[in-house]
Design a protein around this nucleic acid. Structure first.
Lengths: 129, 129
DNA sequence: ACTACTGTACTATGATAGTAATACAGATGA
DNA sequence: TCATCTGTATTACTATCATAGTACAGTAGT
C-alpha cells in the first residue's frame, strides 16, 4: 500500500505524507474513509509509531484528515480552507514544472502522460526497497 | 541561480544537489565547467559552507563533478554518461509538483487541466528538434 | 615572497528525525 | 465489566542536518 525508502534523503514522515496526499488528490481515498491505525501502519511499514503520528498530525494541520480518539484517523469531509491566490501559485508551480521537464527533453505529451500515470497510481516505481 | 527553501522537509544539501544534477542532465552545465566556489555559493544562498561541501562531495561520489584543491569543482567529463537517470529525475519533479499542488487543495483533474492549459500556451519549452 | 583565492579537515553546538518503551484516555463489542 | 482496539502524551536515546569557527594545504597572479 505505502512504501518507505529508508535511504532516501526525504524524511520518512514526509514520504508517507506525500503518498497519502497523492491518494487523496487522486480520489483513491474517499471522504470519511478511515486510514490505517497508527500502530498498524507503523508495523506494516516497519517504522516507529511516533513517525506515523507525525505524518497524521501534519495531515490534520493541513486539513486533509481529522482524528478521533478511540476511533481512528479519517479523510476530512469538510472542504479544506484554501488560499485566495492559489491559482497564481499553481500557475507558477506548473510553469516551473514544465520548464524543468522540458529541459530534460520531454515533449508536451510525455509530460502529460507522466503526470497522468502518477496521478492514476499506475506507476509503482520502486524506491529500491 | 539556485534557490533554497529552508522550510522544506527536503534537506538543504539535497535540494542543492537536485538542482545541480538537473542542470547537468539538462545540458545547462557543460563538461569541464566550473561550479561556484564553496564559500561563494554558501554566501549567495545564505547557507553554511559545510552544507555546500556535503553537496559537492556527494556529487563527486556520484561522478557528476570532480574537485581540484586550490582550483575549484568542475563538471566531470563522464557526467554525460550519467544521464540515464533522467527518468528518475522526472519522477522526482512530478512527485514534487503533485505534492505542492495537492497542498494547495487541488484535485487530480484540476492539476491535469492546469498543466494542459499551460502546455498549450507555451511551446517554447520544447527545445528539441 | 606575498596575497588571495581554492578545497579540505576538524571541533563544537543546537535543532530535527527516528526509534523505543511506557502510560493514559476514549470507543467498541463481547 | 472487561478486553481490545483507537489516538495521545511523555521520556530517553541515537543519528543526521545545519550552523559556526578555526586551521591547513594547493593554485595562481603580482
Amino acid at each position: 500500500m505505502y512504501s518507505i525508502d529508508s535511504r532516501s534523503a526525504i524524511p520518512v514522515y514526509e514520504q508517507l505524507k506525500r503518498q497519502i496526499v497523492l491518494r487523496i488528490v487522486s480520489d483513491r481515498l474517499d471522504e470519511g474513509e478511515k486510514l490505517p491505525s497508527i500502530r498498524e501502519l507503523a508495523a506494516a511499514l516497519k517504522i516507529n509509531p511516533n513517525t506515523v503520528v507525525k505524518t497524521y498530525r501534519q495531515l490534520e494541520t493541513d486539513g486533509f484528515v481529522a482524528s478521533r480518539k478511540g476511533l481512528g484517523v479519517f479523510i476530512s469531509t469538510e472542504a479544506r480552507e484554501l488560499q485566495g491566490d492559489r491559482n497564481e501559485i499553481f500557475k507558477e508551480l506548473t510553469d516551473d514544472y514544465i520548464s524543468k521537464a522540458g529541459g530534460l527533453g520531454l515533449k508536451a505529451d510525455e509530460i502529460m502522460k507522466g503526470l497522468s500515470d502518477r496521478l492514476k497510481g499506475e506507476i509503482e516505481y520502486d524506491k529500491n526497497e
